[in-house]
Structures are given as C-alpha cells and as structure tokens.
C-alpha cells in the first residue's frame, strides 16, 4: 500500500509540552518537513527562543542552541558567520522577536544575514501565563491588560512584516496562518521558500506565522482557530511583504 503521509525525520520522537490546541506543533512540523524535503537536515543548526518554544531543541532533529530571550538573531548571526555553509534558522515567539529582541531582529535584517527566521505570533506571552505581548490586539484581555489593551496607555501592536518591508536587507517576509488547511498549505510553501532562499544566498528571510494560544486566550481550540481568522488576520493581513534577492542586489551595487 502506498504511504501517503508519514512523520518527518526532521522531528524527534519526543512528546511535546505544548497545550492542546496550540499550533506550535503544526509549525514545528512544517519547519521540519521543509528541512527534510530540501535535504538539509544534516546541515541545519536551529536557534531556540525563550518562550513556549524554549524546549524546541528536544523536538527538532538537528543541531540546536538555546539563545537568551530575544537574542536568537544575534546567536544565529554568530553561527552563520562561523559556518556559512550550514543552514541556520531561529524559531521565535512574539515577545522574543518583537519586544525584547526587536533590536536583534531589525539589525540582523538590516545586515541581510542569510538566515531563516520563523516568527510565531500568537498575540500573547504563553510561557509566562498570558501577559500582554507586543502583538496583543487593541482591546485584547490578557493577564496584564485585564481591562483590554488600551492603545492610549499600552501602545499599539507591533506589525513585524510591515516594519521589515522598509528594511533593505530583507529578502523575504511573508505572513501566514495555520488555522485552516489552506492556510497551513500556504504556510508550508512560505517556510520552505524561506529556507530555499537561504540555500540560494538571497538574504534575511522571515515567515510570520499567526498561531493560537487557546489556554491563555481562554478559548477552546476550535474557538481559537476562529479567533485567528476573525480577529488576528484582519489586523495582521496575510501575504508576501517582501520578496527579492538581497544578495544579487548587493552585487549590482558593487
């Protein structure tokens, strides 16, 4: 009988610690499948964030390093400069990438570091129990915005792809979601492209994945998928924000 689907070699057999209904597991699978399909698992070094994916080093079946909170793009820069022949990726949440690590993110992008960044945006700090994230939506109730995020007081959500659109070193930035099968298929294509770009030396590639946090959103998994569709996507439009060959452009300038 033909095998239609099997677990990717890019993931270990470790049971994950993610909550029921959390879509980190899907995103892990998409990253791992992409690496396996591109035949680069043995060349890959991943960088874990601080946040829910902090223990991703137990799940990805490749060399892994754990970075301080927000510093994954700097750690990845060190890895890539040391081993340009390897495939380097970071896997970061919204607090990690868009709050404490904003400087590291934007500057790795400005340098056009030839790395792949997987940015998981679930609009909340999951690991610490549901506090306001830089990407928490206006009005969204969290542990630290108990009356809803008041933008006059707490500011506005950070739109990472929109910011990176203005950064010259960015080769590729796309926002995807994993709340439905069609969205998951698009997300897979985006993630694979972000790695393919690195293999082609195109420059900094980031995929922002809108993800769920049923536990801290106080929703069932199904409600959470709907919240992504009805609340997050309108604020964070899906699509390709940047797609160009930074490396090639550098050669033209030279």
């Amino acid at each position: 009988m033909a095998v239609l689907f099997q677990k990717t070699k890019g993931l270990t057999d470790r049971e994950t610690h993610y909550c029921p209904g959390c879509t980190h597991g899907i995103i892990h699978r998409l990253v791992a499948e992409s690496l396996e399909e591109l035949g680069v698992l043995g060349e890959t070094i991943g960088v874990c964030p601080v946040g829910c994916a902090v223990m991703a080093y137990d799940y990805f079946n490749c060399d892994m390093v754990e970075a301080p909170h927000g510093r994954a793009p700097a750690v990845a820069t060190g890895l890539k400069r040391a081993r340009p022949e390897n495939v380097i990726f970071t896997y970061q949440g919204d607090g990690d990438l868009a709050a404490i690590g904003t400087a590291e993110t934007v500057h790795a992008a400005t340098r056009g570091e030839n790395i792949t960044v997987i940015f998981v945006n679930n609009a909340i700090y999951g690991m610490t129990g549901g506090q306001m994230a830089p990407t928490t939506l206006p009005g969204q109730v969290t542990q630290t915005t108990p009356y809803g995020r008041n933008t006059d007081y707490s500011g506005f959500p950070v739109k990472v792809c929109e910011i990176l659109r203005e950064v010259d070193g960015v080769a590729y930035a796309e926002r995807v979601a994993v709340n439905s099968v069609p969205h998951i298929r698009k997300a897979k294509a985006a993630i694979k492209k972000a790695f393919q770009n690195q293999l082609e030396g195109k420059g900094f590639s980031l995929v922002e994945v809108l993800s769920t946090c049923p536990t801290n959103w106080g929703m069932t998994p199904v409600e959470a998928l709907g919240w992504v569709e009805n609340k997050m996507i309108p604020y964070y439009p899906l699509g390709v924000y940047v797609d160009r060959d930074v490396h090639h452009r550098k050669e033209e300038e030279a």
């Binding site: 070094i45 960088v47 390093v65 970075a67 301080p68 510093r71 700097a74 750690v75 990845a76 820069t77 060190g78 890895l79 890539k80 400069r81 040391a82 081993r83 390897n86 400087a103 590291e104 934007v106 500057h107």
Partner: peptide, 26 residues
Amino acid sequence: GTYLQAESEVAAINMVLGASAAGMRA
C-alpha cells in the same frame, strides 16, 4: 575571518555565543 560591528554589546556577546557554539574561537 569575521569582524562584525554589532548593534549593541548585547548582540555582540550573543554573536560570540553563536560562533563559539559553532566551535570557533570567538
């Protein structure tokens, strides 16, 4: 070799962490 001017001291030491984890003298 690599000389890289980081965006901050924080980033610089983490680049060292990355290069060292890759097995290089950094």
